[in-house]
Write a protein that binds this DNA or RNA. Structure first.
Length: 309
DNA sequence: ACTAAGTGATAAGGCGGAGT
DNA sequence: ACTCCGCCTTATCACTTAGT
């Protein structure tokens, strides 16, 4: 079945019948059996090898994500450029290229001590356990003792379960007691900690679980910062549509679905670029993609042409 | 297409506070 | 005194963005 082409709603100010009709129609199409289930949730997680939105580096076995608009990761793209300058061909490049491991922690499974919490780094520990291990190791070394991981691990217990990151558009779980994921915690710190949210750790009495409270100088300022924060610009195929208005959210899903069914040649859309568009839509609080003047600037001619057709 | 500058992600260490 | 934690800063490399 070929999908119908839909014109985008153009009036962002009026709650018109046309807009509600469009939303209902799109929601029905998205819920339908022919719609790609990968693109259905509000947090879309695209597999590495997905045909149009895949993000695997073109070098076989390389685990890094590809550069925006390029076929290889940052390292291999530079290497391929060097090969081209030297007049060598793609066969020689692929023969020479060594698969690389990502430096950043992505798709690392869950914490070995907190089974429901995603691992933060390559050591299979959540953000808090990872920080605790670093502290403990440094302390042991300062005192001239071996930082034996097994010794430390034997004393670890699951930490209190944390909810989702307080940034509404963020698809990650909170990694810190103040309620932010590690990425947003760092950004919060860099932006001067509005509201000055601080975790107070009550050390456990013998045999009792640890408890935590959060203190604020200005809780409203903290919540305001969370509401305005944008999602991370990730390169691992995660696209968060949270925070978008319903029609724009449905339009993005529909456009992604339609594009994935189109001709394959020249059709690669980097998910990181789509996330930038979504973030801009969220920032401008737009109703429909047609309201977004920045579509062309952000997405380039190829994508904006498809969106606005 | 290329490159320089900027940003993000991870790791490490210092300091002070607080429980044992 | 010992131990552990929160908070902060810094370093480094990976990755993104903007300009040409």
């Amino acid at each position: 079945m070929s999908a119908p082409a839909l014109a985008l709603a153009t009036d962002s100010t009026a709650g018109t019948r046309t807009t509600s009709d469009r939303l209902e129609l799109l929601q029905a199409l998205i819920a339908g059996p022919s719609f790609d289930p990968v693109l259905r949730p509000d947090v879309i997680r695209v597999p590495r090898d997905y045909p149009v939105y895949g993000w695997r580096c073109g070098v076989p076995g390389c685990e890094r994500s590809r550069d925006t608009w390029r076929d290889y990761c940052c390292g291999h793209a530079a290497q391929w450029s060097q090969f081209q300058r030297e007049g060598r061909d793609i066969v020689a490049f692929l023969k020479d290229a060594v698969p690389l491991k990502p430096r950043g922690g992505r798709h690392l499974g869950n914490c070995v001590f907190c089974p429901e919490v995603p691992a933060y780094s390559g050591n299979s520990l959540c953000f808090l356990h990872s920080a605790a291990l670093v502290k403990w190791s440094a302390f042991q070394r300062r005192n001239g003792r071996p930082d034996d991981y097994e010794l430390w691990a034997a004393r670890q217990e699951p930490l209190p379960r944390l909810d989702e990151c307080l940034v509404p558009s963020c698809p990650e779980g909170a990694g810190h007691y103040i309620g932010l994921c590690p990425y947003h915690l760092l950004r919060y710190t860099r932006e001067g900690r509005p509201g000055n949210a601080k975790a107070i750790h009550q050390r456990p009495r013998r045999g009792a679980p640890a408890t935590f409270t959060v203190n604020y100088v200005d809780q409203a300022a903290f919540r305001g910062w969370c509401a305005k924060a944008t999602p991370a610009g990730r390169t691992d195929g995660v696209l968060s549509l949270r925070g978008l208005r319903p029609l724009a959210r449905a339009e993005v899903k529909w456009v992604l679905h339609r594009h994935a069914q189109g001709p394959a040649e020249g059709a690669h859309w980097p998910i990181s670029v789509v996330q930038r568009l979504v973030t801009e839509c969220q920032r401008q609080e737009i109703n429909s993609l047609a309201d977004l003047g920045a579509v062309r600037r952000i997405m380039g001619g190829a994508i904006s042409g498809s969106l606005l057709r």
